[in-house]
Design a protein around this nucleic acid. Structure first.
Lengths: 181, 181
DNA sequence: AGATACATGTAAAATGTTACATGATTTT
DNA sequence: AAAATCATGTAACATTTTACATGTATCT
């Protein structure tokens, strides 16, 4: 019970096809929730069966019949119910941390190279998010109330990527001071 | 393919029973990987069948026959192989972020209370980890080489919790300036 | 006497990943 | 002409969560 709700939030903002949702999960919503198109299509089918969303086939516009999903009343009710429920505190799964922790029993050079690679990836993402912030919210004091939640989530994405970049840097300066830092 | 490797790293450090592992996953390894005892027992059975770990029944010591698992040669080989493989960059699943993003379509007060509750939880964890660091690594310059990986992972846990606490605070000061901050 | 810690599992249900499958349109 | 984007799905497999199930020993 979670991807459903991320989809409901996304559809509450704007109706979309499964394809659109998959792209949103790659972009804005993507830094706090990941989902592949296969998963999305499957969950959308269930949500449609449960009446949470309404489907409209749009044959004219796109070539392969495009199915547009809109949030329906029971979906809104579920979103409201869920928003008032408790969430378990975030659980992280840092595979890289497992590798670092076990570096003495593994391939030290390869693990450090991997840390370096991840630092580059996270630095790229960070730059990308910061660019987004610069573009859409140049003046934090001037953000409209309705845009605050999206801004806060972007801030969260930025904070998370910054943490990861800094942590990778600390690992490299500690375990590999000669090479990469 | 991931819980196996976390278990291998844990067993490479010291042999243990399934029960011990479950507790380690609650504690030190717990802030970067979660696993329940049911999951651990199942994976251990598979690993034993694959010859990655060796099992020894210790009937005398504990009351319900305690099964001690030790890493075996194929397990070490697998650990080495895996350590040199690539890992996908960390994917976060922040349910709380989904709630914040959709706050306009949900129960605003309940979501903010939930953010507050999470901030308390993460602040507690942060304090606990910092206490650990103070206790085990009072002087960072004096840490022995073999302890550096564990210290770095602890630093990661601390950094992550700090990020979460700060992010929750930012949400509350932005969306709920009168009440909680 | 009751609670907590020790100790190990099975079974079912839900979720998520990977591989397979197809086909049109637009851009280079 | 090839590559990328648009567009939707099925099937098999793997993983994770939740519920069920049992029993001893130690501490208060």
């Amino acid at each position: 019970m979670a991807l459903e709700h991320a989809i409901l939030v996304s559809l509450a903002e704007r109706s979309a096809s499964g394809y659109d949702l998959a792209r949103r999960f790659d972009a804005s919503i993507g830094f706090f929730w990941k989902a592949t198109h296969q998963q999305i299509y499957k969950v959308l089918a269930r949500m449609a069966a449960d009446g949470w969303v309404a489907v409209t086939d749009v044959p004219g516009a796109g070539r392969p019949a495009r199915r547009e999903y809109a949030i329906a009343e029971p979906g809104r009710a579920e979103l409201l119910r869920w928003s008032a429920s408790r969430s378990a505190p975030e659980t992280i799964r840092m595979e890289l941390a497992v590798k670092v922790r076990g570096i003495a029993h593994g391939d030290r050079r390869a693990v450090l190279d991997e840390v370096h690679r991840h630092r580059e990836l996270h630095a790229q993402l960070l730059a990308y998010y910061e660019q987004d912030r610069e573009r859409w919210y140049p003046d934090p004091a001037a953000i409209a109330d309705e845009d605050l939640p999206a801004w806060l989530v972007l801030q969260g994405g930025i904070g998370h990527e910054r943490f990861l970049v800094d942590w990778c840097t600390q690992i490299l300066t500690t375990l590999d001071p000669e090479t990469s830092p």
